[in-house]
Amino acid sequence: MTNRKFEAKLVSGKSRAALEFIDDNGLRSSMELDADQIMALMEGLAQIRANMLPEIPDNFRARRPKGDGNAMLMNPKIEVVKPSNGPIRFMAIRSAAYGWIAVALKEEEIGALISQLTGETDISYLPSVGNA
Rank of each mutant, 00 (worst) to 15 (best):
R64P: 04
R64G: 11
R64N: 13
R64E: 12
K66R: 10
G67L: 07
D68G: 09
D68N: 13
G69A: 01
G69V: 00
N70A: 13
N70W: 15
A71T: 12
M72F: 15
L73G: 03
M74R: 13
M74H: 10
M74V: 10
K77M: 13
K77R: 14
I78N: 01
V80K: 08
V80D: 03
V81F: 09
V81C: 00
V81M: 02
K82M: 01
K82P: 00
K82E: 02
P83L: 03
S84Y: 10
G86Y: 06
G86F: 06
I88M: 05
F90T: 03
M91N: 00
M91Q: 04
M91P: 04
A92K: 15
A92E: 12
A92L: 07
A92Q: 12
I93M: 04
I93S: 01
R94M: 06
R94A: 06
A96Q: 12
A97Y: 06
A97C: 00
Y98T: 11
W100C: 00
W100M: 01
I101R: 15
A102R: 14
A102V: 12
A102D: 08
A102L: 07
L105M: 13
L105C: 09
L105Q: 04
K106P: 05
E107Y: 05
E108P: 06
E109V: 03
I110V: 15
I110E: 11
I110F: 09
G111W: 08
G111N: 15
